[in-house]
Design a protein around this nucleic acid. Structure first.
Lengths: 204, 204, 204, 204
DNA sequence: GATGAATGAGTTTTCATTCAT
DNA sequence: TATGAATGAAAACTCATTCAT
């Protein structure tokens, strides 16, 4: 019993430190970009000794992977839940759009981190980041296929359109950030989905 | 006279070396990503001594800027020419789409370089890369505004839609690259523009 | 009484843990050499926590000393017993030779540890390992002196010859190890002693 | 012509710096042992910047290999020349013995380096140092075989005896060093060879 | 202008040791 | 006593930049 408690407490403490490190990495990445990310700074930001970083992660690369994973995890989770939900395709796409806009409204600095992640994604070895993105696109493609099956959309190359839709949303995100995130979020999300809805509608 | 010739010859030679360096940078950037870009390697790839790099550029950052500028210059030039041409808005957008697809079909490795460029773009100091991108979006927005004025499109927030259109095209590019650039380029370009055309059409 | 028993039990337990640590050090030293010997690994190999090492030893050096001492203790003990025994000098040397070959046949990996020990031995501060080796040589020298006194050997510089004899045995050990420990051990031991016996014999 | 001279001068300069680094390594190794050998210290001792070390060698291991190679090269060269010469076997062995004693009289501190080398030699990956030592033993074995063929020595396992002879010499070296290198070198060399000569002599 | 040897500040990484529990 | 998370000094290595030739 006592052992259980102790081990639990230990686990919690460990997770706490680890999370602190990851937060430090993301914070630094957002504020200073890839260039400012040194182990020294991460340690300082996390309030631990340099050596401690190596207690929790084997090297810098692993820290980075974990941090990126952690940053986008909420967005990915919510998006996936939503795309697998019970709504009609139209609604799913709009919710998805909204979800992205909301996420980057809140964490606008993560947009930079995202692009850094993308740069890595296209290097041969990093199928890791790539697979995350692919799954994203595939899920959206699945929703589009549903729409086609239901007679809602015209026949289409779902993967390509899905990629376009995902990126169009990112375009909107970037423009919103550039504008200082002025407009209402619902309107902008609707704008994105409306174009695709109308553009893909089955009219016979 | 002799002096003139000599000076001219010198200028040509200088331009030649400079271009060789930039090509080396782009080649390296494409093959190995940002990580593999050291001045040593650039010099080796360009076939000059390390010191020579500093004869033509003041530091690494300047070399990078120049190389990125040079890489995307053809795309930017062609796109701008096209968007400022005499065609109707519909045709302009389709040509623009085709232009992007074609460029990245040919230089698919530049996609990685592009994302690296984006990461920098969102850091405070680099308004430089940003301004290039902004102009891009603004030109497209101009075409959209023309379309609205001509009664072709519904009223719209042209900057946001332009950003979406530009990114949707990048989504298509990325999907094409992922698929191994299989489908016909004209069909894919049409797919992109059709969605936006139809999605934005003025129906009253 | 209860206290006595408890204390005794404690002592035994302590000795057990201590020995486990030393075994771990020797095992690691044999398998990975000096380079792979970290306190982390020692703790893991011994199955105790890192902190425990510092309960039994004050620092790494002390652990190392103790481990080396322990490794060669059997060889040293047996050799000394033998050299101080009642046999004739000739027999003593042959037994000594046999003793060394047997020891390294069994613990051939300790040969590496030995050389590491020697490197330290020749550094100023380590008179410790040195004295162990010196005693070794001195004992053999004593036997040689006995032989001279008994008219068996010619007059000789016993320390130098003793050093030669000890090292010649190590040469044989190394060659045996290199050959995969093929030949019969008695023959090889005899080979070593025969050369010295014959080479040193008093012929007048 | 000018180019030739320039290149030659460059080569010389390069070799000079490289040699300076190697000398620094050996010096440090002799004075402080393996433990004191850090790249910082090597650089300081050699009077160059840390980075310069990496201009000439790819990493610490390579520096070490080169330094050890360089240290023992004179001994190895002289020994080999001698063993392949035209003298009779007896003379060769005595010269060989003398050669070793002389070398370590002069560079007595290298004895420590030697033992460090040995520790590495017995690790799996370092067939490098091992092969150097093997060749040494093999050459001596060759001389012994010659002696047997000429009826000078009894039949013998030449590799084992060679190993013994080489090590016996090292024993003498170590004893001499311990004694402060007192005795005459020729006498000691003769002592070593006499024992083996007499011990191996063919008496029928 | 062109060179490339040399630099050294700045990075990542290691690991013996401590100490609160 | 035993633990193991945390430490931080010290080590290896990188690379943009300089400068004498």
């Amino acid at each position: 019993m006592g052992v259980d408690k102790k081990q639990e407490r230990k686990k919690v403490l460990e997770a706490f430190t680890k999370q602190g490190i990851l937060d430090a990495v993301v914070g630094l990445l957002m504020r200073e970009g890839m260039h400012g990310l040194t182990m020294d700074r991460v340690a300082a930001e996390a309030g631990v000794a340099k050596g401690t970083l190596y207690v929790y992660f084997t090297n810098k690369e692993e820290i980075l992977d974990a941090a990126l994973e952690a940053s986008f995890d909420p967005l990915i989770r919510e998006s996936f839940a939503l795309l697998e939900g019970d709504c009609v395709p139209e609604r799913k796409l709009e919710e998805f759009s909204l979800c992205q806009l909301r996420f980057f409204d809140k964490h606008r600095d993560l947009i930079r981190v995202l692009f850094f992640d993308r740069e890595r994604m296209h290097s041969e070895r990093d199928h890791y980041a790539d697979s995350r993105y692919r799954t994203f696109v595939e899920r959206v493609a699945g929703v589009l296929d549903d729409g086609v099956r239901e007679g809602l959309f015209q026949p289409l190359d779902s993967m390509k359109v899905a990629a376009m839709f995902v990126e169009a949303n990112m375009g909107m995100v970037m423009q919103r950030i550039h504008d200082g995130i002025s407009g209402e979020i619902e309107k902008d999300a609707k704008q994105v989905t409306d174009i695709f809805m109308e553009g893909l509608r089955n009219r016979e």
